[in-house]
Amino acid sequence: MDFENENKVIVIGGESVAPGQNKLLKISIDRLPTGTLIDIPVYVFNSKNPGPILLIQAGLHGDEINGIETVRRMLTDKLFAIDKGTIIAVPILNIFGFIHFSREVPDGKDVNRSFPGTRKGSLASRIAYHYLNEIMHQIDVAIDLHTGGGQRHNFPQIRYTQEDDFSAELANVFNAPFTFSSKLIKGSFRNAAYLMSKPTVVFEAGESMRFDDFSITAGINGILRILQHFGMVKSTIKNREELKKTIHLDKRKWLRAPTAGMFIPKVLNGSQIQKGAILGSVSDIYGKKTKLIKAPEDGYIICINHQAVVNQGDALFHIGAILN
């Protein structure tokens, strides 16, 4: 992928960031019912030297705090001190969801199903519209940080768009424990980016409203590997050759609760499993009936639902497998 031979002036919210400047900017979105103005904070680190314009964003779902903490730590530790190119870092995209401890905005709509959005639409649609028009047309590539939702804990995994070879390359560089392609979803940020020819990877790790240091560290190291890949920062972590290689998964499947009851997992997230292995159980509250959940094939556990009381059909384990 070719980049400009000189860095551009970044313009967001009517403010400019020239090459060699770093600024905290804001995109005004709306007001709370109290009249308090809500802004999306946007950090811009614009080097004097030419290179890619990389967007690193978190909090598209307001309750997915691991990604927010990942960006915060990188800001605090000054890990965005770059030698070339530009970083646009957005710690919290969905401010409304964040302050309400919610995935969605107050009207229940999902910003990550609202792209490209409209200027006079719903709150989620307007957030998507302003974000796309203020930021997305200026970037070259993007890293979107997420967690599992609804007490589902995702073992660190990087997802890319199968139709986009450059996103697959970025996923390999990121080198999360698991890597796989996932389908584009209409209205998602990644779909909008793909339609704009902006290669994007999605890092999923941990669960909503719960910090997981292993996931946060994996996210920081993955981002640093991409920055090093582009020559934007000096090497600060082990070379990829010294690290355990990511596991490429060819297919995935959810295992669901065979009945309602108390769910007890019996394996660790990220574990390798063999066909027929007992992964967990669902029991009635009277101790009379227990149904075992067994692995349908060899593979890996990439997500576990931490909900203790489940209904029949609830997703319990997400497993990934490698085709022979």
Rank of each mutant, 00 (worst) to 15 (best):
M1D: 09
D2P: 06
D2T: 11
D2C: 10
E4R: 15
N5A: 10
E6Y: 03
N7E: 12
K8M: 06
K8A: 10
I12V: 06
E15W: 00
E15N: 14
G20K: 08
K23C: 03
K23P: 00
L25H: 04
I27Q: 08
S28E: 14
I29V: 15
T34K: 08
G35C: 10
I38F: 02
I38M: 04
P41H: 09
Y43K: 14
V44C: 05
S47I: 03
S47D: 09
K48Q: 15
L55S: 10
L60G: 07
H61W: 01
I68L: 05
I68D: 05
I68M: 11
I68C: 05
E69P: 00
V71Y: 01
V71R: 03
R73I: 03
K78V: 09
T86V: 13
I87D: 03
A89Y: 03
A89N: 07
V90Q: 07
I95G: 07
F96R: 08
F96V: 05
F96D: 13
G97F: 02
I99G: 06
E104V: 10
E104M: 11
V105I: 09
V105H: 02
D110I: 02
V111I: 08
S114P: 01
P116W: 08
G117R: 06
R119D: 10
R119A: 15
K120H: 14
S122K: 11
R126C: 06
R126V: 02
Y129N: 14
Y131I: 06
E134L: 08
E134F: 01
E134P: 03
I143W: 02
D144T: 02
G149E: 14
G149K: 12
G150E: 14
Q151V: 05
Q151P: 01
H153P: 00
H153A: 15
F155Q: 07
I158T: 09
R159L: 08
Y160M: 09
F166M: 13
F166P: 00
S167D: 10
E169P: 02
E169M: 12
F174P: 00
F178M: 06
F180R: 13
K183R: 13
G187M: 06
G187S: 10
F189I: 08
N191Q: 15
A193S: 13
Y194L: 14
L195G: 05
L195K: 13
E204L: 06
S208I: 00
M209R: 10
D212V: 01
D212F: 02
F214R: 14
A218Y: 01
A218D: 07
G222I: 03
I226K: 06
Q228G: 13
H229A: 07
G231R: 08
M232A: 09
K234W: 00
I237S: 11
N239I: 10
N239M: 12
R240E: 13
E242K: 14
K244H: 08
I247S: 05
D250F: 04
K253M: 15
W254D: 12
L255C: 04
R256W: 01
R256V: 04
R256D: 12
P258D: 14
T259P: 00
A260V: 02
M262T: 12
I264H: 13
V267L: 05
N269T: 09
Q274G: 05
G276R: 14
S281W: 04
D284W: 06
Y286R: 15
K291L: 15
I293H: 08
G299N: 13
G299C: 09
Y300K: 15
Y300E: 13
I302M: 03
N305K: 11
H306P: 01
G313C: 11
G320Q: 14
L323H: 11
